[in-house]
Nucleic acid binder design. Structure first.
Length: 705
DNA sequence: ATAGGGTTAG
């Protein structure tokens, strides 16, 4: 009865049952009673209470029971207590050794687990298959490939290969090392496979970005008459998320609902939230999140990260605020890593710095991921010295912080510095990954470094065996396209092994705009509109191409096309930070308290810059209206409102910093150049693509906004 | 009926 409760996760019922048992005079608990209950208890409080009973009843001299006690204490991180009981044991069988090692492992306490292993060796106790199965996950955790392989050799030498536990653990370890072939070989050689074996091989492919293979093995496993369990579905959700298969995602969710698994385990609920977030169906992610029977830290981190990665930065910060109201939750490194990119996106330097404060207060070693997010934050807010000093502090043995620095310099148009960092990184023996090359390619394209970009693209594939993703191809199209090599850009698209999406054709379209190629522009835009007819930005590009050639009938055509499609415009906003608060301006937003003043100043500035040569470019207006109305529409663009607000509220020569969620409008780009000349101010605009430094009527990016 | 597999994050 007790273990029946434990099996179903009803810990308190199990304890009640033990209580009841004690009240019956003729029935005495035996040494089988306590271990399952100890295993099931989920707090140190319950554990110590059980320990008191056990001592009172005189069971703490039982090897069986004390091994479970040791396991429990180590599991909750009370390794001293665990060790003390372990030391006091009069006799230790294999179970005891394994139990204590496992306790440390479940707490992620690799050092203590390994020291017990040394102790074992000193006493001449040989590892059995359970020891091996327990210690292999630790090798995986510490990325200790050498020891992992030594243990694998030990397994072969002592004939432990046939154990299902051992093989499963080996599959998992090799999967974490990214050695899929090794994992596959172990799986293939297994004579007997259980559900864990199948789950492990599915997870192996899922975790190494091979979702299609993962789904294939899932299919095979059902053919082999294995019934998927909760853990199978966790891997399945993640695989589906990677394949971007929205329909599949919904059916996986349906399967989970029918089995009522969301209420059974928090992990699967989190996995579903993450799946919907990765599929870009953020509304569903939020719905599932709201309906979770219990939310843990990972649930919150997942939804915050989901919003941030789908470009809903302010929603991410809203959820983070709600999260902070919950008393039983303490944000951790994972939380910072989710929320910091949102702050970076918004240009919310103050909020980001507050997080930096929390991180410092925690005082532990600077986590590479958190530090990298901070580098990214300061970089995106243009704080050069903070960026550099953090990079100086952070451990640089992985590509992670290097990638952030490469991308930072790329954003500012310093492609040469990015390349220098890349060679420095290689000199230090750090292995580049796909993010490194993405940052590099983007840096090269922003700085017009065509040959260097090509060099990186080739090196990535030939020397590091990294297959280019859609984003890498997008950078290459951009690289050639910006440089005017439109045919080469087109050839890149032709050579792609996957279907180009709208961002790829959009990059070509952008290049056609810069270099005035109407024919290819028409072709590219027809491909874009076939794939993603909703983004207004692409219509603006085409309209601008026609306008530059004076082909006004083309401009009209694009306008009517846009009107017929009923475009969803991503609401554009620009923000500016003044006196520690962020002001956000939306396009055409008239509700600002200083609206009248802004509007008046805008008219004055407009008249002045027209006097020094500014001519409005109406091809950036998609609405089919009279010219003076077009001018009003241009004037309502959020970046202008923010700049004028900055002029009104800062000292005459102070520099102005603006953050934007979309790309800067071409006409606004031109206006800003004139304003920088007129006011003799430095104006820095960070848009979704890069930094623009305006000074004396020029921009750091030339005309290729 | 002591000891093995899972979710977030640049």
């Amino acid at each position: 009865m007790v273990s029946a409760y434990v099996r179903n996760g009803h810990f308190s019922e199990a304890v009640k049952c033990v209580y009841e048992m004690l009240s019956i005079p003729d029935v005495r608990p035996d040494h089988y009673t306590f271990p399952p209950v100890l295993k099931a208890c989920n707090s140190i409080l319950d554990g110590t209470r059980l320990h008191c009973w056990i001592s009172k009843l005189g069971f703490d001299w039982d090897v069986f029971v004390s091994a479970s006690l040791v396991h429990m204490y180590c599991r909750f991180g009370f390794s001293c207590m665990g060790h003390k009981i372990f030391k006091a044991m009069p006799f230790r069988d294999m179970g005891c050794w394994n139990s204590v090692i496992s306790g440390f492992c479940q707490n992620g306490n690799a050092k203590d687990a390994l020291s017990i292993l040394d102790e074992m060796r000193l006493e001449g106790v040989k590892m059995d298959s359970v020891t091996v199965a327990t210690i292999l996950p630790i090798c995986a955790l510490m990325n200790d490939i050498l020891n992992g392989m030594l243990i694998h050799l030990y397994v072969i030498k002592h004939g432990l290969e046939s154990g299902v536990f051992v093989s499963n653990a080996l599959i998992n370890m090799y999967a974490k090392f990214g050695k899929l072939a090794c994992a596959q070989r172990i799986f293939d050689n297994m004579e007997v496979r259980d559900l864990v074996s199948w789950n492990s091989i599915v997870a192996a492919y899922e975790q190494n970005d091979c979702p299609h293979n993962a789904l294939g093995f899932f299919h095979q496993m059902t053919l082999d008459k294995f019934h998927p369990d909760l853990l199978t579905l966790v891997s399945l959700s993640s695989s589906i998320a990677q394949t971007k298969d929205c329909l599949g995602g919904k059916s996986v969710h349906g399967y989970i609902i029918r089995r009522c698994w969301i209420t059974k385990d928090i992990v699967i609920g989190n996995a579903v939230v993450d799946m919907y977030a990765k599929l870009g169906i953020i509304e569903y992610a939020r719905e599932v999140f709201e309906e979770l029977p219990r939310k843990d830290l990972i649930s919150w981190n997942t939804i915050i990260g989901g919003y941030a990665q789908n470009g809903f930065a302010s929603e991410a910060t809203e959820v983070y605020k709600i999260m902070k109201e919950c008393d039983n939750l303490t944000p951790n490194e994972g939380t910072w890593v989710c929320i910091l990119p949102a702050y970076a996106h918004l240009g919310a330097l103050r909020d980001g710095m507050r997080i930096h404060g929390h991180v410092l207060k925690k005082g532990i070693n600077l986590d590479v991921f958190v530090a990298t997010c901070l580098i990214d934050l300061y970089g995106k807010c243009g704080m050069l010295s903070e960026t550099l000093s953090l990079f100086h502090e952070v451990p640089k043995d992985t590509s992670v912080p290097w990638n952030a620095m490469i991308s930072f310099h790329g954003l500012h148009g310093h492609g040469g510095t990015s390349l220098k960092l890349f060679t420095d990184m290689l000199d230090e023996g750090v292995k580049p990954d796909k993010v490194t090359f993405l940052s590099l390619l983007s840096a090269c394209s922003h700085s017009g470094l065509v040959d260097q970009g090509k060099w990186c693209f080739d090196m990535m594939q030939q020397m590091y065996g990294i297959k280019p993703t859609l984003q890498h191809y997008g950078c290459m199209v951009d690289l050639y396209g910006r440089a005017g090599l439109l045919d080469k850009a087109y050839n890149i698209i032709e050579s792609m092994p996957m279907r180009p999406d709208s961002s790829i054709w959009g990059a070509l379209l952008g290049a056609c705009r810069i270099h005035g190629n109407v024919e290819m522009g028409k072709m590219a835009s027809s491909r874009v509109f076939g794939l993603d007819s909703e983004d207004a930005g692409y219509y603006v590009l085409l309209s601008n191409i026609y306008a530059n050639f004076g082909r006004w009938e083309g401009v009209d055509e694009v306008r009517s096309l846009a009107r017929d499609k009923g475009l969803r415009k991503t609401p554009g906003w620009s923000s500016i930070e003044l006196n520690n608060t962020i002001e956000v301006f939306y396009t055409g937003n008239q509700s600002h308290p200083q609206w009248k003043q802004i509007h008046k100043e805008l008219a004055i500035v407009n008249a002045k810059i027209k006097g020094i040569g500014y001519i409005p470019d109406y091809s950036f207006v998609l609405q089919d209206v009279e010219d003076d109305e077009k001018e009003n529409i241009l004037n309502s663009h959020s970046e202008r409102l923010a700049i004028v607000y900055g002029i009104l509220n800062t000292h005459p020569k102070a520099s102005i910093r603006i953050y934007k969620n979309l790309r800067v409008c071409g006409d606004c780009h031109n206006v800003t150049k004139f304003i920088s000349k007129l006011t003799e101010r430095e104006i820095v605009v960070r848009d979704s693509n890069r930094f623009h430094h305006f000074k004396d009527g020029y921009c750091s990016c030339g005309d290729y906004w």
